[in-house]
Design a protein around this nucleic acid. Structure first.
Lengths: 200, 200
DNA sequence: TGCAAAAACTAATATTATTAGTTATTATAT
DNA sequence: ATATAATAACTAATAATATTAGTTTTTGCA
């Protein structure tokens, strides 16, 4: 009956991550988390701002981790090679952390600033990876949006079991990424155009 | 106090759709739906198999509607033009029905057969749209997976507010779709390869 | 007109999130 | 070393939701 001590935020996040990634984010409740930590549900409020706060902390932590991995993957590479490494690492993360990945893109919670910040850093990283291609700033923005769509779309559909057939998913992913990468020069040389809008 | 009558499944689905699309799927509860319909929560069980059953019915109905719109968009067109029309209609649907769209890709519920069936029809439709390109069956499967990733990825990120900058989203979408479409010939002529796997 | 089926209802239970108020433990400061 | 302040656990209570069981009302048909 010893009152438990020494529970800190990282331990809470670690336990929550495990629940979210192994049983799905709908199974991550304050009740299930408290049970896993051998404390009572209300005690969690000492560490986290309710369920929305918990999810947000998980999202922030997960996005930071993803950013680190992506940075590491891109360091020392450029051009197509860098983007392919980025893409592989992205999917790897989504597969290793399905729950956290989903939370990463969820509705902004209490503490949304941190998530937004890391999101911005991630876009900056992509912006740097675009430099090799000699695109306009505006073109880069559109291309980055496209790339994010590609990566997230595949990861999300795969996670939800959207791809039924027993055909190698890694091959599909490589084909998708290669196709997109191959299209970037077409944006550069005007075969695929981005008419300038007013708002810059 | 007259006990209400004449409530049928379509009316239930209509009301649920409205809640899901205007307030988000997390706001679609049996309680909120019952209130909208002026009945008590348990009465909903006469029409629907609990909350999972409701969500599934919504998903099935929504996917059927999407399939119809996509079929209509593709009729009389082929090749790039057909795919672009398909893509535009897809995004249009996701924007008009954000809640239902999200449910469409959710976890398979009680009645998952109908959703799976329509999903198969949708892939068949795409398979027909691929015919113009002269691809292998296997190549077509990979390309379709890619196209679905592209469309879903953009729709999903847009819905979650993932694109922050005040730059025209329709332009980004067109660029993304065009880039992908432009890549299909590269698959055809072997510049982007799909090594054959064992499992057919 | 009566009867069977459908669809509403009330009542009750379990789960979850959350708030308020309390107690115990830890760390600090005298 | 001891008193005190802060931290983090706890219990108790409330509200919202989903769900089941059992009942009543209404409808449509025989």
């Amino acid at each position: 009956m010893s009152p438990r001590i020494g529970l800190d935020l990282p331990a809470v996040i670690r336990a929550a991550t495990e629940i979210a990634d192994t049983h799905g984010i709908e199974s991550l409740t304050l009740a299930s988390l408290a049970k896993k930590l051998n404390i009572r549900t209300p005690s969690l409020y000492n560490h986290v701002d309710g369920l929305p706060g918990l999810r947000n902390k998980l999202a922030a932590h997960g996005l930071e981790l993803l950013y680190e991995k992506l940075t590491l993957a891109a360091v020392g590479r450029s051009g197509d090679e860098a983007i392919r490494a980025f893409a592989d690492t992205y999917l790897e993360f989504a597969r290793a952390h399905p729950g956290v990945y989903e939370l990463t893109l969820g509705a902004p919670g209490p503490d949304a600033a941190e998530v937004a910040e890391t999101g911005k850093k991630l876009v900056d990283l992509l912006m740097r990876l675009m430099e090799s291609y000699g695109l306009t700033h505006l073109q880069s923005i559109h291309v980055i949006r496209g790339l994010r769509s590609v990566l997230h779309g595949f990861a999300s559909l795969e996670q939800r079991g959207g791809f039924g057939l027993p055909i190698d998913l890694d091959v599909s992913y490589r084909l998708l990424v290669d196709t997109f990468v191959a299209g970037i020069p077409a944006v550069r040389n005007g075969k695929i155009t981005v008419e300038e809008q007013g708002e810059q």
